[in-house]
Structures are given as C-alpha cells and as structure tokens.
Write a protein that binds this DNA or RNA. Structure first.
Length: 275
DNA sequence: CCAAAACCCTGAAAGC
DNA sequence: TGCTTTCAGGGTTTTG
C-alpha cells in the first residue's frame, strides 16, 4: 500500500545508487505492466543506453528523469515493489521488469497483483500525462495551506475521508494515512466536508502533515508487501493508531475501535475520540 | 456535480 | 481433508 511516505522512502533509498547509472539492458518478463502509448519493444529501445539523471516524486508517482528528456513513470499501486538488487540475487516472485545497470546491479519491478504500472513519456508532456495532470498540491510543500484545505471542503457533502483520498484535492494520501490523520485530528471519517469548523480544518491540516512526516521518518508502513528500494521494511506500522486495529482498544481512551466502509475502503476509527 | 461501480489480479479465507 | 468459490485490497476511470 505505498502512499506518499512509502514512495518518498523508495525515492530516497534509490536516488544515490541509481542516478548516474546507464541502462545496459531491459528485460520485460510481463509486458502487461507497461502502460501508455509505447509497446514493450519501443519501451526497451527507448531506454537502451540512457542514463538516470534524477528521481522525483509527485503524489504517489515516481519520476525517473533520463538524460535525453524522457521520463520513466512508475506507480506501485497496492503491491508493487521497486528494488535494487545484485545480479546474482534471486528474483522476487512476480518480477515483471528488470533494468540492467552499468554498475552490474539491477533495478527490478515486481508486483503480485499487477495493479502497478510503468510508463515512458517526455518531460515536457508530464503536465498532460493521465494521472499526473490532475494531481492536487503536495501536502508537505508550502503550496498546501489551511486555506487550500478549507476551500476543498467548503460546500462538500461527501465524507471528509473521501475528500482526503481524492488525489485531485491533495496528492499522496491513501487509506492508511487518511485514517491516521483523521484519528489524530479527532474527526469522524464520515463527517460531511462542509460540517468541519475552521478549528477542525486547522487540526486536520496539521495532522495530515504530521502523520506523513512521521511516516517518512519511519521509512514507511510495511503492513504487507511494502519495502524500500533496498528491500528493507519500514517501521511506521508500529506507530499506527487505527489502521488495521479494528476491534482493538483505542490507545488514548481504551474504547474498542470500530470499522465502517467509506469510498469502498475499510475505515477504522475511535467512536469516542473522533466526533 | 457527486456517488457508486468497474477494472486491474492474486492469495487468503470461506464454503462445500 | 481437499477442492472450489468468493472476496478484499487501492487508485483511477467509467458509468449512472
């Protein structure tokens, strides 16, 4: 379930080892994960001999900038993994793509569910690229303010959790961090957006930023599949207050945490601490 | 405009 | 016990 903190951790762990490397070969074990206009053959041809210049993140997307203006775009969705490995290391099950690097190491993309996707586009086309084009502001950047959030909830009847999950409103939150932010802000996930007071909006804004920052500090949440770019698990799962804890007591008041379904997602909350 | 369902796929759980 | 069926899971797109 890679969300912003997990994707950022992958970015940080891969950057120093991948940037500057040249792509010597690309193995396509499962062409289906390559999306966009290029077929698998063109995908490989366009990557051969290219050099990685920089890795950026936008929402939950990883952007690998190449030395000729192309960008390798990767979204891990639920179970995708992107790991740098020695050539001799055994392949993870469900490995779909392998980039052979000039260092002799390999960048490998694996994904049990195959929901993840890999695309190649031009840097100047990023702003019209599906998925990226309509992404909202980065929650940890200065562009995302209390006023931005206030404007996003104004007049909205949709549950506040649905609003947080909408990538066009704010980029990078998923089920885990949305639940955690709402718990920390003391707001019930099914509250209509328009019902939030100014004070609650301020609490939520702060909670979102804090829980994402804490997620990054702890190198992400390894609840099931997630590992960073070197195959290491994160530690944030030990600090979660509600996600995955339905039926367990609230860390704050001891009340049994409850579950509801919002936006088609299981949602855990404390019926006492969150109002 | 918003809400709900479909879609992608496999592993785990439930049912028989 | 072992086989078959059902469904969860997240984000995006499509449909209503």
């Amino acid at each position: 379930m890679p969300e912003l903190p997990e994707v950022e951790t992958v970015r940080r762990s891969l950057s120093p080892l991948v940037c500057g490397q040249e792509i010597r070969a690309v193995e396509v074990l499962h062409p289906g994960v390559i999306k966009g206009v290029l077929n698998a053959r063109a995908f490989v041809t366009n990557l051969m001999g290219r050099r990685f210049v920089e890795i950026r993140r936008r929402g939950k997307y990883l952007l690998f900038l190449l030395d000729d203006g192309q960008v390798l775009l990767i979204h891990l969705r639920m179970t995708g993994r992107l790991v740098l490995a020695e050539a001799e290391a055994p392949l993870l099950p469900h490995t779909h793509l392998i980039w052979h690097l000039s260092s002799g190491q390999q960048l490998r993309f694996s994904d049990v569910r195959r929901f993840g996707e890999v695309r190649l586009c031009r840097q100047e086309q990023l702003e019209i690229e599906p998925g990226l084009a309509r992404l909202g502001p980065e929650p940890l950047e200065q562009e995302w303010t209390v006023a931005t959030l206030a404007a996003a909830v104004r007049g909205k009847k949709a549950p506040i959790k649905n609003i947080l999950l909408n990538q066009e409103i704010v980029a990078g939150l998923g089920n885990i961090y949305a639940d955690e932010a709402l718990y920390r802000a003391g707001i019930k996930p099914d509250r209509p957006g328009q019902s939030l007071s100014q004070e609650e909006i301020e609490r939520l804004w702060l909670a979102v930023r804090q829980v994402l920052a804490e997620g990054i500090e702890n190198r992400g949440t390894s609840f099931s599949d997630y590992v960073d770019g070197l195959g290491q698990k994160g530690q944030m799962q030990t600090r979660l207050k509600v996600y995955g804890r339905s039926g367990s007591p609230c860390h704050s008041c001891g009340t049994i945490l409850e579950k509801m379904r919002l936006a088609g997602r299981s949602t855990v909350y404390c019926p006492v601490c969150q109002q």
